[in-house]
Amino acid sequence: HDVTIHAGDKTIHVHGASEEFLRIIEQAKRDGIHEEELLRLIEELVK
């Protein structure tokens, strides 16, 4: 999957995102996670 995530003034493109990655991001959004926290989460996941 190619994913584009908008968080605040940043746009992150993730190529080859796994289903698990997508679920984590969707869950985080539903939980109302702060955008900066979401960015950190994404950066950890894509290392």
Rank of each mutant, 00 (worst) to 15 (best):
S18Q: 07
I24S: 07
D31F: 02
L41Y: 06
I33E: 03
H34A: 15
H34C: 07
F21D: 11
G32M: 09
E37F: 05
F21Q: 12
V14C: 03
I25T: 01
L39H: 07
H15L: 07
A17L: 14
G8R: 01
E20H: 06
H34W: 10
V3M: 10
D2I: 14
L38Y: 07
E26I: 08
R30Q: 13
L38I: 08
E36W: 06
E19D: 15
E20Q: 05
K10F: 05
E20W: 01
L22F: 07
K10E: 08
T4Y: 01
I24Q: 10
R23N: 15
I33A: 14
H6E: 12
K10H: 12
I12V: 13
D2G: 13
R23M: 12
I5P: 03
E35H: 15
I24E: 07
R23K: 14
L41V: 07
K10R: 11
G32S: 04
A7P: 05
L22V: 14
E43H: 10
R30V: 11
I25R: 00
A7V: 15
G16L: 06
H34P: 14
V14D: 03
I24F: 10
E19Y: 01
Q27N: 11
E36S: 10
E26T: 08
E44H: 13
L41A: 02
I25E: 00
E35K: 13
E26V: 06
E19I: 04
E19K: 03
K47C: 09
K29D: 05
D31W: 01
H15R: 11
E35A: 15
H15N: 10
I12N: 03
E20F: 00
V3P: 03
V3R: 03
E20V: 01
L39V: 13
T4H: 11
R23T: 14
A17D: 03
S18H: 05
A28R: 05
I42W: 14
I33H: 06
L45N: 03
Q27A: 13
E44Q: 14
E35I: 15
I42C: 02
A28E: 01
L41D: 01
E37C: 06
F21R: 02
E37T: 07
L39M: 12
I33Q: 08
I42M: 09
T11V: 13
A17E: 03
L41P: 00
L39T: 07
K29S: 12
L38K: 00
Q27C: 04
I12Q: 02
E20K: 01
